[in-house]
Each structure stands twice: as C-alpha cells, then as structure tokens.
Design a protein around this nucleic acid. Structure first.
Length: 358
DNA sequence: AAAGTCTACAACCGCAGATCC
DNA sequence: AGGATCTGCGGTTGTAGACTT
C-alpha cells in the first residue's frame, strides 16, 4: 500500500519562506527544542507541512550553520571526499562543520563539477579526460590466468547493445562490436581476465561518456543519452554515466572464496578483495561481525544497479596503501562501507583518514 | 528596455530505515 | 509483532536575480 502524503498538500503553503515564518520556527525551537515535526506547524502557528518545517530548520535556520561561501580548503575537501564517497552528500557534509548535505550537493552541482570539467577532469571518475582517452586507446592484450576461479563473461560483452541512430552510437558501435568479438568466445573467464575486461568496459563507457559530452556540446539538437548506448538495464533508477552499463549481474552470485574478513585483513589482502559484488561485501561484513547491522540498502543498491563508481575509487585508494593488485573492485572497501557506520568507525578508525590521504 | 537564458540555491519529493506505540 | 510515524537521504524541481542578446 502506498504511503499517504504527510500533509494536505492543497491546504499548506509551499515555496520560499518568509522572515515571519522563520521567526515562528526559531521561537518554537527555542522553547520546545527540535523533534516531532508534524506537530510543529500547528503549535508554531504555521500553515506549512511538518516536513517542510524540519527541512527549513536543518538546512537553513540551525544556529550552527555557516552561510558564507565555501573556502578553497572546503572545496578541496569536498572534491577529495567525492572521490571516495561519490554522491553520498550527508557523509561528505559530516566532514564539513556548518555545512549541510544540501549545501554540499548544490555547491558540487553548480560549481565544483564545472570547475573539474574545465580542468579537464571527469567529475564522476576524477580522472583526466586525457587519461580516459589514452587508457581506452591502449586497451589491448589479455591477462594470463593466475587464479583458478572461473567467472562467467559479463553480459555486456556477450550482447552488443541495442543500437540507436544517434551519432555517438554510430561511432561507438564498431568499437563495441570489436570488444564483443574479442571476448564473446570466453563464456567463462579467470579472475585476472575478468579484471582486465571489466576495466576495459569501464574505459569504454568513460569513452562513450566523453564522446557524448563532446558531440552534445557541438550540436544544438537533442543529444543522445548514454543510456541508449548501454546494455539493457533492469527497471530502476538511471545512473549517471559512465558506470550505468555495469549491471553487476554476472558477478553477483559467485561464492566468496575467503573466510573471516578480520583475519584476512592481517593476511593476504589480495585474496580478500578478489570479489566484486556488494553481496560479498555484505557477507564479509556479516562474517566478520555476525551481530553487526549491515547497511542493506547500500548492499542492495550495489547489487541491483551496479553503482561501483565511488567504490572503485576507494579501491584505488586501497591500491595506493597496500600495493598494486590489493583491491580488484574495491570489495574490501565495500565490505567496510557496508558495515554499520558506528561499528565501522570503531573498527576502522583510520580507514577514512587513510582514504583522505589518497 | 524587453525578452530570453543562465546560475545559484532553496525547497520539495518519494523512498527507506529507525523508532515509537 | 506490526502498523504508524518520524527522520534522513539523494535526486529533482522551482524560482529569484544576474547576465546576455
């Protein structure tokens, strides 16, 4: 059953808040404190939805909020944290005293994203566009099998994406077909092969992204969307390019090969992280801490929609700390991120600091 | 000067987990 | 135990003012 609306939307005021309304909220909070926001409109004499009152307070009226512009230090911090967390604005905002998730999100969308693009950096991957191009161009060779683990080929390699007649698609179709031809014979792949192929697909998607940006900026007609280029998605929210095409379906049900994550933390990190699915991450977190609540939503999102962007960046951070190959898809990062945040901060207090140095 | 466009950011929406009763 | 309510979150929309044509 669908949840009923929190208030009668026809009879409550919406839109910008007036100074009088702000004063009523402030007066109410100063005497009653925060909480029970559904009662606030009535008690404070406001013709507003309780939720709207709560948002006004948390995003604007709270006395601990800063209302001045972002400093260069804050900018740098947001960029670094976005590299790690992606669009987890509330997590990012926790590292910026006096700023709300809404502030950070708006600042990113209006300023920082464009700033990075002007600097030639892809705001999604935080990699230079030039590197994305050169990585793609140098894409060649196949790894030697080093592990016994056999994985099914990703569906995006065994199915050439459905075509559209867009300009980007016309350019990319031969490339996709080439990749398809190269790998389609491999119904099952060893783990190292899988890694390389996944990287190539990611690069391909990044290439598509850049290409679509370029063509859309050169054309006044409606630009082709990246989603047209990607493999079929199950129903669900569309994710930002370039990661949208990676469904994760073909890798989310492999048995995870390791035991207790904490033991393995001290041991062979490479084995720990040789898994790519958040399902494993969830399993790892559960194995390590049987009675620990796990952020199931994060796990589900990862498993369902394959949203590995920030996790991949986390994986790179791990690589820089623990050496090349120590994280394949960032599953160790996934595991830690999948833990309940309180438990995570207790067990891995240095974890985020380490990533921030990255 | 007027109309159109862009920018910044405030506000809203719906979903989902947490908490209450 | 489970339904109702509260709260937090990320994505999206609305809008005022600045800027351009």
């Amino acid at each position: 059953m669908k949840r009923p609306p929190c208030c009668d939307k026809l009879n409550v005021k919406r839109g910008l808040w007036t100074a009088e309304e702000d004063a009523k909220i402030l007066a109410y909070v100063s005497t009653h404190g925060t909480g029970n926001w559904t009662l606030v409109p009535k008690k404070a004499g406001l013709n507003r939805c309780g939720k709207s009152c709560r948002l006004r307070w948390t995003n604007y009226l709270r006395p601990d909020l800063k209302h001045d512009g972002f400093s260069p230090e804050e900018e740098d911090l947001i960029i670094n944290l976005h590299k790690i967390f992606g669009s987890r604005w509330s997590l990012i905002a926790k590292h910026l005293p006096g700023r709300t998730d809404n502030d950070v999100k708006n600042y990113w969308n209006t300023k920082l994203k464009k700033k990075l693009q002007k600097m030639g950096i892809d705001p999604l991957t935080h990699k230079p566009f030039s590197q994305i191009f050169s990585d793609f161009e140098s894409m060649s060779g196949r790894p030697n099998a080093r592990h016994h683990q056999i994985l099914p080929a990703p569906s995006c390699l065994t199915q050439v994406p459905a075509g559209s007649d867009s300009r980007v698609d016309l350019i990319m179709k031969p490339v996709m077909e080439q990749v398809h031809e190269n790998f389609t014979a491999e119904n099952h792949l060893s783990w190292p092969q899988y890694q390389v192929i996944n990287q190539e697909v990611m690069q391909l998607q990044q290439y598509q992204y850049v290409l679509s940006e370029v063509t859309s900026s050169c054309s006044s007609s409606s630009s082709p969307t990246l989603t047209q280029l990607n493999t079929q998605q199950s129903d669900g929210p569309l994710l930002p390019s370039p990661f949208i095409a990676w469904t994760g379906d073909s890798i989310s049900h492999q048995p995870f090969p390791t035991g207790n994550v904490l033991q393995k933390c001290e041991g062979d990190l490479q084995d720990i992280v040789s898994s790519s699915s958040i399902d494993y991450a969830s399993d790892m977190a559960k194995q390590a801490l049987p009675n620990t609540p796990v952020d199931t939503m994060a796990c589900e999102n990862e498993a369902k929609w394959g949203k590995p962007g920030y996790l991949c960046e986390g994986a790179q951070a791990l690589e820089s700390h623990f050496g090349q190959g120590s994280s394949c898809f960032g599953s160790f990062t996934d595991a830690i991120l999948a833990m309940d945040s309180k438990m995570r901060s207790e067990l891995f207090p240095e974890f985020l600091d380490g990533l921030l140095d990255y």
